[in-house]
């Protein structure tokens, strides 16, 4: 069973609120939480939904009466409902101020409480609230491995049963959205279709950190190589790279490899940089001979 919802509380009103109070309270809150004014804010969308539902009930004299009458005992309202349906059948709608349309598909339904008390929303209102000419936009998320995003790939995705072949350019970023024109909901009255928005979610499967087109990583360098100089080979997304380590390289030294970072989105052949931080590894588990040699070194520096 659905939980009781206090519609007065949602609109910040007391039970003796006049219809004018309700209208005012509703509009005030609607201006604050309207989805078109709160993009990317699902909390606001939810809140807006509740306000709408509260208004739908309290601004309609009959619904409000029923709601007030049964209140928290609404579960026994069945008989009342039957009588109500008969009476309201031929009645022209007294209220032409309909609810809002700002939602996308998600969260467009009223609560279970509402539906159990009043039945499905009246279709006349439902249609009126769906004010769009252009079809709805669809939103989808696509998970990508960072190592996959290094190259341009083709992928087939399924949206509402349709297979769509898409090309994902190298260098795409987490949070980035690509638009597929016309793959959203159908237009109404000859209006154009909506679009499909695909948001990429990056899953870092590497030991690299990515900032825009730049990559960074820590590379371990053996003590002897750091002191005497030498070479270290590292694995990058673009293949192996040999690094020249100059003699007396200090721990934490940073170096930049130009053009060895991530590919720049939609700019073929262009790459960011790779930033490397050297981590000098001290040898452990030294043999007696090694320890002696270090002692000699230590004595030299006394």
């Amino acid at each position: 069973m659905a939980n009781f919802i206090d519609y007065y509380k949602i609109l910040g009103l007391s039970k003796d609120a006049t219809s004018d109070d309700i209208k005012k309270a509703y509009r005030k809150l609607a201006r604050k939480f309207h989805p078109d004014l709160n993009p990317n804010d699902t909390e606001a969308h939810k809140k807006f939904q509740q306000i709408n539902e509260a208004n739908e009930v309290l601004s309609d004299a009959e619904k409000r009466k029923k709601y007030d009458q049964y209140g928290e005992n609404w579960k026994h309202a069945d008989q009342f409902e039957q009588a109500q349906h008969q009476r309201s059948a031929g009645r022209p709608s007294a209220e032409d101020y309909s609810g809002f349309s700002g939602f996308n598909n998600e969260g467009g339904d009223f609560s279970d409480f509402f539906e159990q008390l009043f039945g499905q929303r009246h279709s006349s209102r439902q249609q009126k609230t769906n004010v769009r000419y252009r079809g709805e936009d669809y939103n989808a998320e696509l998970k990508q491995k960072l190592s996959d995003a290094y190259t341009t790939r083709k992928e087939i995705i399924t949206v509402n049963g349709n297979n769509i072949r898409i090309t994902i350019p190298a260098g795409i970023e987490g949070g980035q959205v690509i638009k597929l024109k016309g793959y959203g909901g159908p237009g109404i009255n000859g209006g154009p279709n909506g679009d499909l928005y695909i948001k990429f979610v990056m899953d870092n499967d590497t030991n690299l950190n990515r900032t825009g087109n730049d990559l960074s990583m820590t590379v371990d360098v053996p003590l002897y190589t750091a002191i005497l100089g030498g070479e270290v080979t590292i694995d990058t997304l673009g293949g192996k790279i040999k690094l020249k380590i100059p003699p007396e390289t200090l721990n934490g030294t940073k170096t930049r490899l130009k053009g060895k970072g991530f590919p720049v989105y939609k700019e073929e052949g262009k790459y960011g940089d790779l930033f490397i931080t050297y981590n000098i590894k001290l040898p452990t588990g030294l043999s007696e001979e090694e320890k002696n040699l270090f002692r000699q070194l230590a004595n030299l520096n006394k």
Partner: peptide, 13 residues
Amino acid sequence: LKELEKLVRLHTE
């Protein structure tokens, strides 16, 4: 259209 319909909704609603 997308932007316009958004503004129309704000205007009418």
